[in-house]
Write a protein that binds this DNA or RNA. Structure first.
Lengths: 222, 222
DNA sequence: GCAAATATAATAGTATTACTATCATTATTT
DNA sequence: AAATAATGATAGTAATACTATTATATTTGC
């Protein structure tokens, strides 16, 4: 059953064969997300994934060069999707403060499933973003990969929200630092709340992470 | 030549044999730091380290169970050392704002070499902290390792500085989030400034990272 | 409906990793 | 000088992260 209206564009340098273009490719993405989350990046292998989807390791390699590029692909998918949601929900807004507030909601609130992509479980993908995404760029190859555009979507999201900050206060000196701090911070706080809670002030159902970062942003840019 | 007056205490669960207790152990630490930094965590191996120090892989395993515990050891050493500097430079201060300011200096300014530990190059270690330390806790074993106290020194530093925040504003709701956000944020910004500069507003010699985070903290807690 | 083209599966193989185990050698202590 | 402890050398194992080759389906174009 096909229920999607469009694809999320991901940098073609990240795959040998577009996984969104075939049934096997989509199975790799779907089950890859579930296994990456359950096993963790280190224990995840293409061999295990192949077994799980009744396919062969060598077939997966025809889509992705390595599990590293699969991770980067997923991170990119996430940021493309986030950029899409960001643009969609803020483009018609005129009041700069409301606009930024909305953008911060998208960056700080937990993710909910988007029915349009049945081969991506966005909630599970979000867990991967929280726990593993920093491994995408903490590599000795960052610079080479950056040149190939591996982190372009992430940078674009930061740029867009930074621009919203400048709309409110054009003299604010550090919009990129502020927004990348919020993005990475949210992921850390969600990870810590599960595993190292004394590093946070998380309380179930009290929305502290969202409240904390929104408040921090508006106070900082004044 | 022995020029140290005391050792930095590191959780004994992190080693099989205390590396600070022997010449070989110190060589493992010293050269381990240099190689971890130059090769990166993924490409670093005990075999390569053994070759470099003219020793055997198996000898290194007698000190550390795995390269993961070596990394966690170094991260712990760093936080113990930072806690020591923190306490030393703030304990006599009475004005809460100056006290917090000083603490933030220690957390945000680049690290300088401490002559007392000739087997630790703190500046290189700091590069490891920036580029690799998040891998210490982004593991499937976090919870088990947390129970063994692998992250205790980090948590203690966060707690100490959070307490300083509460000294200024006892009603501030999120001191731990704030301080862990600053700590992780600084590392990210220093990493980004080298590899993904468009995510920052770093400018050489302008102290932007320090200024940004100090300003952010004081504005947020008011 | 069949051949050609394409995609996938199966198998095998390689160098490296992350260890463990055993035994030999060298230092240190008593 | 003997005992003890530390280190080094060697070998071995299961798994990883691939690459290469060949075989078998499946799709498509005519």
């Amino acid at each position: 059953m096909e229920n999607l209206y469009f694809d999320i564009k991901v940098n073609a340098a990240l795959y040998s064969k577009d996984p969104q273009s075939s049934a096997l490719g989509k199975k790799i993405l779907k089950q890859g997300i579930l296994m990456l989350e359950s096993l963790g990046y280190e224990d995840f292998t293409f061999k295990k994934l192949g077994k799980e989807i009744g396919s062969n390791e060598s077939s997966i390699y025809r889509y992705f060069d390595s599990k590293h590029t699969l991770l980067v692909y997923l991170v990119n998918w996430y940021w493309s999707w986030t950029e899409y949601r960001l643009v969609l929900s803020t483009h018609s807004m005129v009041d700069p403060k409301r606009k930024l507030e909305k953008a911060l909601s998208i960056l700080t609130e937990p993710v909910r499933v988007d029915q349009r992509f049945d081969y991506i479980d966005e909630e599970v993908l979000y867990q991967i973003i929280i726990a593993e995404s920093s491994k995408a760029y903490h590599t000795k190859d960052v610079d080479a990969e950056n040149e190939k555009g591996f982190y372009r979507t992430y940078k674009r999201v930061v740029q867009r929200v930074s621009d919203m900050v400048l709309l409110i206060n054009p003299d604010f000196e550090f919009p990129h630092m502020l927004i990348s701090t919020v993005i990475e911070g949210v992921h850390h706080q969600r990870y810590f709340s599960k595993h190292l809670p004394s590093l946070t002030d998380f309380e179930e159902g009290k929305n502290n992470i969202v409240r904390f970062y929104k408040d921090l942003v508006f106070k900082t840019i004044q």
